[in-house]
Simulated scan of single mutants.
Amino acid sequence: MSLRLGDTAPDFEQDSTIGKLHFHEWAGDSWVVLFSHPADFTPVCTTELGLTAKLKPEFDKRNVKAIALSVDGAEQHGKWIRDIEETQHTVVGFPILADIDRKVATLYDMIHPNQSETATVRALFIIDPKKKLRLTLTYPLTTGRNFDEVLRVLDALQLSDQYSVATPGNWKDGDDVIIPLSIKDEEVIKQKFPKGYKAERPYLRLTPQPNK
C-alpha cells in the first residue's frame, strides 16, 4: 500500500555507508530528506548526490538530514562515493542505504515495475521531526530532480508549521504568504499578522512573510 501525506514514515533497520542504521533513531529531532536512486555508478544519480552533498550547509540551517538509497551494497557505495566526490568536487557527508534486499524500497513503494522490475525510481520523501510524511516526489529514471525545489518546499513547510500560513504558487522565501481560510476571526488575524493583509477576494488574503 502506498504512503500518504500525514502517515508515519515507516521505521526500519538497514545497512548503510555508516553501518547498520536504525532510521527513526538516526533521524532524531531533525527533518529528513530520504531519496532513492536506480543504481550506483550511473550518471544522473552521480550528479544528484553531488548536488545534495553541496547543499549540506543549507540543510543544516533548516535542521535537515539527507539520506540516500539504492539497492546496491555498502562496499559498492563506498567506491561510488569516491567517484562522486572527484567528479562533482564535493564531499558526500550523508549516508547511503544499502538496500540489497529491497526492504526499504518495498516499505516506501520505490520500485515501479513499469519503470524497472528491480531498480528504484527517483522517489523523494520529506519527513518532519514527528516522523510524519510531509511531501512525496517521484521522478522517472531519466530525469534528475530539482533540489532547489526541495529547499523551497522545506522552507514553505517549516514556515507554515511555525506561523499557520499557506504559500502561493511559485512562492520563494521573502514573498507574501496566504492567511488560511481556517482563520476567520479578525482579532486573531491582527494578533497573528500584525503587518496587516491585502484581500484580493474574501478567500484570498495576502500578508507579508511573518519572519521577515
Rank of each mutant, 00 (worst) to 15 (best):
S2N: 04
D7H: 04
D7M: 03
T8A: 07
A9G: 10
D11Q: 04
F12A: 03
F12G: 02
E13P: 00
E13G: 06
D15Y: 11
S16W: 07
S16D: 02
T17N: 01
G19M: 02
L21M: 12
F23W: 14
F23Y: 15
H24D: 03
H24T: 07
A27I: 12
A27Q: 15
A27D: 05
A27S: 13
G28T: 11
G28F: 10
D29V: 13
V33T: 13
L34I: 12
H37P: 03
A39C: 05
F41S: 05
F41T: 05
T42M: 06
C45I: 09
C45Y: 11
C45K: 14
T46H: 11
L49I: 13
L49A: 06
G50T: 04
G50R: 12
L51F: 00
K54E: 02
E58N: 06
F59T: 12
D60R: 01
N63L: 10
V64D: 06
K65S: 12
L69H: 12
L69M: 15
E75P: 02
H77S: 05
G78E: 09
W80K: 02
I81Y: 04
E85T: 09
E86R: 15
T87I: 07
H89S: 14
H89Q: 14
T90V: 14
T90E: 07
G93C: 11
G93K: 01
F94K: 10
I96S: 04
I100T: 15
V104I: 15
L107E: 06
Y108M: 00
I111P: 08
I111R: 04
H112R: 11
P113A: 04
Q115N: 03
E117A: 14
T120C: 06
V121K: 00
A123W: 05
A123P: 02
F125R: 12
I126H: 09
I127R: 07
D128A: 06
K132G: 00
T136I: 15
T136W: 02
T136N: 05
L137A: 09
L137F: 08
P140N: 04
T142Y: 01
T142P: 00
T143P: 00
N146K: 09
D148C: 03
L151S: 07
L151H: 08
D155I: 06
L157K: 07
L157I: 12
Q158Y: 03
L159N: 08
D161M: 11
Q162M: 05
Y163I: 06
A166H: 01
P168K: 14
K172W: 08
D173K: 15
D175A: 12
D175F: 08
V177A: 11
I179R: 04
P180T: 13
D185C: 09
V188H: 09
Q191D: 12
K192P: 03
K192W: 08
F193M: 08
P194N: 08
K198Y: 05
A199L: 01
E200S: 14
E200L: 14
R201P: 02
P202V: 10
Y203F: 15
L204W: 11
P210C: 13
